[in-house]
């Protein structure tokens, strides 16, 4: 389903808007309202984060949303129920740390597929770290989306491109998730290098929060990922997150 989505975007000359939310944040009811609202506001792909107690790749906004969700009893299977209930028309990527996935048992990817999930992205399972488990992800029913960092050398990019499915998530800068006033200067070069070894669509995330940034990155990549800015807005109100998403969509659609 990710492939179809990206092909149709490409055919229409449009950039993908990938939106991240933490499952169960600010609470279950509003989380459901939020993901439906983001779809209506023009998101192309939704990344649904499984909250984890020790999110080492996340900055304060997503840490805090994870803690809020966990305190209200959100779990990986709880997130799958939420996704199933939302009945979305756009593809969903499950975004998780490895430990909750291991704990959820060997048929978790099948359960996720049944709930309507198309892809899975694991923050702390880099290419080559655990070939046996990576093979399990690769053989499962979901597209296994891999990450590329600004520190990743070209030969590793090739390997990641070879093992990745759906799209490649390019981290725009060093550091954990969170909003930034400025984009990393190295980003255009990173995109160019990755493009030279990778035929998958490239979506750039980390630090993108404003329509201006969306437009700038949209001109270079196949799509953008917005997380912390949406999560922070959703903490204030679902409507605020929806309004932000609409403005990001409008900015991306100005890119030709």
């Amino acid at each position: 389903m990710l492939n179809e989505r990206f092909s149709s975007l490409r055919a229409a000359g449009r950039r993908a808007l990938v939106c991240y939310v933490t499952a169960g944040h600010p609470d279950r009811a509003r989380s459901l309202e939020l993901i439906r609202g983001l779809e209506d506001a023009g998101a192309d792909v939704l990344e649904i984060g499984v909250p984890f107690s020790d999110p080492v790749a996340d900055g304060p906004v997503i840490q805090s949303s994870s803690q809020t969700a966990l305190e209200q009893g959100m779990t990986l299977d709880g997130a799958l129920e939420l996704i199933a209930e939302a009945k979305l028309r756009i593809p969903v990527v499950l975004f998780s740390y490895l430990n909750p996935i291991i704990a959820a048992g060997p048929d978790v990817l099948v359960r996720a597929k049944r709930a309507g999930v198309s892809g899975v992205l694991v923050t702390d399972l880099p290419v080559g770290a655990d070939p046996e488990r990576e093979a399990w992800f690769g053989a499962g029913p979901l597209d296994f989306v891999r990450l590329v960092a600004p520190t990743t050398p070209r030969d590793r990019m090739e390997l990641i491109a070879k093992h990745g499915r759906g799209f490649v998530y390019l981290i725009s800068r060093l550091g954990v998730t969170g909003m930034q006033a400025e984009l990393a200067k190295s980003l255009p070069a990173s995109i160019e290098t990755l493009r030279s070894v990778c035929s998958l669509p490239i979506c750039v995330g980390f630090g993108i929060s404003t329509p201006e940034q969306a437009k700038t990155v949209g001109a270079l990549a196949d799509g953008i990922v917005v997380g912390s800015a949406i999560v922070q807005a959703a903490g204030r109100s679902v409507n605020e997150a929806v309004v932000l998403t609409r403005s990001l969509r409008a900015a991306l659609d100005e890119v030709k």
Partner: peptide
């Protein structure tokens, strides 16, 4: 990340991609 840097089934390098080159 090779097997020799595990202790039986334990250890490994389960980190964000950014840290692998470091």
């Amino acid at each position: 990340a090779e097997i020799s840097d595990r202790f039986g089934a334990f250890g490994g390098q389960y980190v964000p991609e950014t840290l692998i080159p470091a």
